[in-house]
Simulated assay, not measured.
Amino acid sequence: MGGSPRLGGENPEHVEMLVAASASLPPIVVHRPTMRVIDGMHRLRAAMLAGRTTIAVRFFDGTEDDAFILAVESNIAHGLPLSSADRRRAAERIVATHGRWSDRMIASVAGISTKTVAEIRRGAGDGVAAVPARIGRDGRVRSVDVSAGRRLAHELIVGDPSLSLRQVARAAGISAETVRDVKHRLLRGEDPVPRKRQGKLAGEAEGRSAGSVAGWREVKPPPAIVMARLKADPALRLNESGRDLLRLLNIHMVRSEDWNRIIDSVPPHSTESIAELARFCADKWSEIAARIAEKGVG
């Protein structure tokens, strides 16, 4: 698969405009494993046309599929806008490679409507359309048919009425509002699944175990994509504490081979000290993770 979301390639007029502007441009983004330009092909062409022999680069170490998503997001966010055809084709590819993502999440990446994404998904074949749970923009996994989630929420509420809406929602893979509706139905003595949802999938939903629902809940976007989204979040990058957190997280986004190189460079007389410090840092990050997780529990 190609790495650019632009079906027509680079725009010569835009390249010439960048050359004429002669302004300082941000670094291009390159996929390190393939050395393919993810974002900044126009800037690279402009630099070559201007006779420059070097250009600032930021490397991305994820998969080619994730690199394509970053390319789409980058071109949607700035620079020469993608055409409608480019954005639709990008959505088609993302539906094929990231079928577990929700329609709304894919739409936000590709810059098209959720209705268009749903249409693309319907035409993509049974394998893509039949995914039982999808990852939303908030990183949470929710069932396409929430019948199983509603029944699991019902069991959780009956088993421990003290659980909050958010706790039940996370365990059952459904929204807090859906849990609220299940609670109200429980109080009224009604079935947790509304009659209109009890269609042909009801039997499959009832037979799905809590373990299988939990299994879907474990699916998460790749760390590199999560990191890229966090870096673009104004709530983090526009304040000093947020930028400090992003820098700390980014330091740990190191490839396995780079960690191996770092470990191999540790001198024998320092192994015990460095191992102890590494364990201290791991414990500290575990404590931080627990405290942050507590903030999301209502």
Rank of each mutant, 00 (worst) to 15 (best):
R217M: 07
S265V: 04
I292A: 10
L277M: 07
S256C: 05
P267M: 07
D264F: 10
R291T: 14
R237Y: 14
E272P: 00
G242Y: 08
L277K: 13
A214I: 01
P222S: 05
E276G: 15
R247P: 01
A214N: 04
R229M: 07
N250R: 10
R208F: 01
H252P: 00
A228T: 01
D264T: 10
S212V: 07
E218C: 05
L249E: 02
R229F: 01
I263K: 12
A289N: 10
G242M: 11
R237G: 00
M227Q: 03
P223Y: 02
R229E: 07
R261V: 01
P222R: 02
I251G: 05
V266R: 06
A290V: 12
S256W: 09
I262Q: 14
S270L: 11
A228W: 08
F280R: 15
T271G: 10
F280W: 12
N250Y: 05
P268V: 15
R261T: 09
R255V: 08
W216N: 04
R279T: 11
I225C: 01
D233V: 01
I225V: 09
P268C: 05
W216E: 03
R291S: 14
R261E: 10
V226E: 02
I262R: 15
L230Y: 02
M227A: 06
S256K: 14
S265W: 06
D233A: 08
A214S: 13
V219E: 08
G211P: 00
A214D: 07
V219T: 02
N250K: 09
W259Q: 09
A289Q: 14
D258M: 12
I288K: 08
A210G: 15
W216F: 11
D264P: 01
I262P: 02
I263V: 14
R291M: 13
E240I: 04
V226Y: 00
A228R: 08
A232I: 05
I225D: 00
H269I: 11
F280L: 09
P222D: 04
A278L: 07
P221A: 04
